[in-house]
């Protein structure tokens, strides 16, 4: 009887395990084997094993990788911090009782609901140096900054603004949900003790929010590190390579040059970096908690 039960259990596990193996584990192993190969797929020539060459090239002889990594890290740091601060402010304001509170809550969520590539094209049009509304408004105030997207000094920050516009609602939504779940007795007690609004926020709200802040920040770090659609739709990595993210560079190597071995090596380096950053972020927050 026990054997039959064990067999039934295994039979139930098999489809799930097979799915995981085929869809999850196999591509991972396949891409790892490719990372140690040279494969210019467009030539129609098969792949050859090159050991660690791809990884060595990435580290020692690929300025474009380092440039894209530098841009991506800066981008992630700026956008996640800004989104957290703005999201927190919005959530705090909209937990208070006020007129049109529900309207504003929905309004602030809208950017997140738009598809990323759509957001990219909308902003590309808004920031168009000749037809864009932004340059026209600036011109109306006699501010002449030609080509916010075509200037290597301003383009990275334009992308950051777009990201903040799109993803602040994510922080706002998570933090608002958490705040609404806080027991009101804590705030009543603080009020009885004469705590000011700032002290209540600093000593009650913020510590209570810490676990959700960790989770939301980590999700945003991982997600924004994969920055692709905005770059693809707005600047294509330009001007020059000033807005080329690590994802976009990997995509270019893989799907423009069809250098699939090197692209897989880049992807693995990318994965290791994300894991390392996630680990650092988690540890840091845990220590502070």
């Amino acid at each position: 009887m026990a054997m039959i039960k064990k067999g039934t259990g295994i039979a139930f596990l098999v489809p799930g395990l097979a799915f995981l193996l085929i869809m999850g584990i196999f591509p991972l192993i396949w891409s790892l084997t490719l990372a140690f190969s040279k494969w210019k797929a467009a030539t129609g020539v098969g792949k050859t094993f090159v050991g660690l060459d791809n990884f060595i090239n990435i580290i020692t002889d690929d300025p474009r990788f380092w440039n894209s990594l530098r841009f991506t890290v800066l981008y992630v740091m700026v956008v996640v911090l800004l989104e957290l601060v703005l999201g927190l402010m919005l959530a705090y304001i909209l937990t208070e009782k006020m007129r049109f509170r529900n309207f504003f809550r929905i309004l602030f969520l809208l950017p997140m609901a738009a598809p990323a590539i759509g957001v990219a094209f909308i902003w590309r049009m808004l920031l168009n140096p000749e037809a864009g509304i932004v340059s026209k408004i600036m011109a109306a105030f006699s501010i002449n900054i030609p080509g916010l997207l075509t200037n290597a000094s301003t383009a990275p920050y334009m992308l950051m603004i777009i990201d903040v516009w799109e993803w602040t609602p994510f922080m706002f939504m998570g933090l608002l949900a958490a705040m609404q779940a806080f027991p009101p007795e804590l705030y009543d007690a603080a009020a009885v003790d004469g705590a000011s609004g700032w002290k209540t926020f600093w000593y009650i709200t913020l510590p209570l929010l810490q676990p959700i802040i960790i989770t939301l920040s980590l999700l945003r770090v991982i997600d924004s590190f994969k920055l692709f659609e905005i770059v693809f739709g707005v600047t294509s990595g330009g001007p020059g390579s000033s807005t080329e993210s690590l994802s976009f560079y990997t995509y270019t190597v893989g799907f423009s040059y069809f250098n699939l071995g090197y692209a897989c090596a880049l992807s693995w380096v990318f994965l290791v970096i994300i894991l390392a950053i996630s680990n650092v972020v988690l540890n840091r927050f845990r220590k502070e908690a």
């Binding site: 474009r64 075509t150 200037n151 290597a152 990595g237 330009g238 001007p239 020059g240 390579s241 000033s242 270019t252 423009s256 040059y257």
Partner: peptide, 16 residues
């Protein structure tokens, strides 16, 4: 050509 395009953009942007 893509690498030519990439680095040309650096020249036009005054980065190199």
């Amino acid at each position: 050509y893509d690498y030519m395009d990439l680095h040309l953009a650096d020249a036009l942007a005054g980065k190199a």
